[in-house]
Amino acid sequence: MAQLIIPTPLRKYSNEASTFNTEAFTIEQAIEELITEYPDIKPHLMDANDKIRGYIKIFVGEDDIRALDGDQTELKADSVVSIVPAIAGGSVSIPTWIGERSRYISVVANN
């Protein structure tokens, strides 16, 4: 039975369950089963077209499914599937940075 590891930030939508066991044959089926069990998790995993959101990566073992067969990647009984949210940020927001750059260009242009 394959095991899905639910990321900590999404466990408030899975009744605090950290793992989910499934006999699904593919990633797509496993995610469908997870969403059936915990419907509140769906908007955090899937976009409006029912595709896995761009900022969510899925790993089988240590392999990103984008380098395998995507959501049709097959699962084995001992597969460990990790749902991985993007973790990123930074000190300057993009609009602010663009604004600073525009001012810089403006200053240069005026000199």
């Binding site: 930074g90 000190s91 300057v92």
Partner: peptide, 22 residues
């Protein structure tokens, strides 16, 4: 994470990328 030469204020970029609970 660190903000070199910037205050410890969460940016718009931090907010866009943030996850619940953390």
């Amino acid at each position: 994470h660190s903000h070199p030469q910037h205050p410890a204020i969460a940016s718009e970029h931090d907010l866009k990328q943030a996850m619940p609970f953390f």
